[in-house]
Simulated assay, not measured.
Amino acid sequence: MPKFHCLTAIVTGLGLLAGAGPTVAETGKGNAMITAALSGQPSAVIADDYRPAGYRIVVSQEVFVDGERAELSRYERLDGRNGGLGGEHFSTVIDEKGRLKGFARMDPDLAVGVLPSPEEARATAMLFLKAAAPDLLGTLQISWIAPHDEPLRVRHGDRSERLTLTGMKVKMRNTADGQWSWVIVGTDRKVMVFERDIVWVTFPGHRQTEQWLHDSWLAETGRLARSF
């Protein structure tokens, strides 16, 4: 089981919401400790398989997901290209039991290419879940499969451009507890986004589970322990 270490740091420039739960700012020592704690865990191995080459960790932070502790790790390009919120990144959330709660792979290359068919996306999703979330396979029921867009900011000198990364989303409901999971397959036929155990409040309709993998939510709430 990963152990979360208390790192002492002064976090500046953050408008943390009241009741958001403790956060941990990045430090070189802390990153090494967290990496060591997670290494060898199945979740860490799976996440490493999807993390692009040439990335470095920029944030390691203890977070809370529906009241349970987890670890948010954010990686960005070594060369700094399109860094910061809204830009290129690979992020993971792993809970304190070592379970992969989700990851996001925001890569501009996914803005082009042909989408997988619903059948291809379903097959890719099931194969992925077999490795990343085998405990869900017996209770998940596919709700729908359809294209899904994710925004990405890229810079060209002093100018910024908004790209749209489109993947084929396989959305599934857990018949045991009513929670939601999904796998989004990119144009490269690999998983672009994975999230599990999402709690949805029916009335009024909104997502209850924190959105640690979504930069728009991080920017809006100020919960990321780094000022870019």
Rank of each mutant, 00 (worst) to 15 (best):
Gly178Tyr: 05
Pro118Arg: 10
Leu38Val: 13
Arg81Leu: 15
Pro42Asn: 09
Val11Glu: 15
Ser160Pro: 00
Ser43Leu: 06
Ser43Asn: 05
Met106Glu: 08
Lys97Gln: 09
Ala9Tyr: 01
Thr202Ser: 11
Gly186His: 00
Trp182Gly: 02
Leu137Val: 05
Glu68Asn: 08
Glu220Asp: 14
Val45Thr: 10
Val93Arg: 13
Gly86Asp: 09
Thr92Val: 15
Val114Gln: 14
Arg207Trp: 04
Arg226Trp: 10
Ile198Arg: 01
Glu161His: 09
Ala70Glu: 07
Ala176Phe: 01
Ile46Thr: 04
Leu129Thr: 09
Gln208Phe: 13
Ala44Lys: 01
Ala121Arg: 01
Gly86His: 09
His206Pro: 00
Met106Tyr: 13
Trp212Val: 08
Leu136Pro: 07
Gly30Ser: 03
Ile10Cys: 07
Leu129Trp: 13
Ser73Asp: 03
Leu129Arg: 10
Ala121Leu: 03
Ala125Cys: 11
Thr124Ile: 09
Leu224His: 07
Leu38Arg: 06
Glu26Ser: 04
Asp49Met: 07
Thr202Met: 09
Val154Leu: 09
Leu72Glu: 13
Asp95Lys: 06
Arg51Met: 12
Gly19Arg: 13
Met192Leu: 13
Val170Gln: 14
Arg77Val: 11
Phe64Pro: 00
Asn82Gln: 11
Ile198Tyr: 02
Pro118His: 12
Glu68Met: 04
Ser73Thr: 12
Glu161Trp: 03
Gly15Met: 07
Ala18Asn: 14
Leu78Val: 15
Ala219Lys: 06
Ile142Gln: 15
Val112Met: 05
Gly157Asn: 11
Thr139Cys: 03
Asp197Ser: 06
Gly83Ile: 05
Asp109Asn: 07
Asp79Ser: 05
Gln211Asp: 01
Arg69Ala: 14
Leu78Trp: 12
Pro2Phe: 09
Leu110His: 05
Asp135Gly: 08
Ser43Ala: 15
Thr166Met: 10
Val185Phe: 02
Ala37Lys: 02
Glu62Arg: 12
Arg51Tyr: 05
Glu88Asp: 11
Gly86Leu: 12
Arg99Trp: 01
Ser216Gly: 06
Arg74Asn: 01
Arg173Asp: 08
Val11Tyr: 06
Leu38Phe: 15
Trp144Ser: 12
Ala44Trp: 07
Arg81Asn: 14
Val45Ser: 01
Thr12His: 10
Lys171Asp: 15
Asp197Phe: 00
Glu96Gln: 11
Glu220Tyr: 03
Asp149Cys: 02
Thr209Glu: 11
Gly19Pro: 11
Gly222His: 14
Gln141Thr: 06
Glu68Leu: 08
Thr175Glu: 15
His89Phe: 13
Met192Lys: 04
Ser117Ala: 03
Glu71Arg: 12
Leu165Met: 00
Val93His: 10
Cys6Lys: 08
Gly15Thr: 03
Phe4His: 12
Leu110Arg: 06
Leu218Cys: 10
Ala176His: 04
Ala47Cys: 06
Arg189His: 14
Gln211Thr: 01
Glu119Asn: 06
Leu218Glu: 14
Gln208Pro: 02
Gln41Tyr: 07
Phe103Leu: 13
Gly13Met: 03
Gln141Tyr: 05
Met172Glu: 05
Glu161Tyr: 01
Arg99Phe: 04
Arg196His: 12
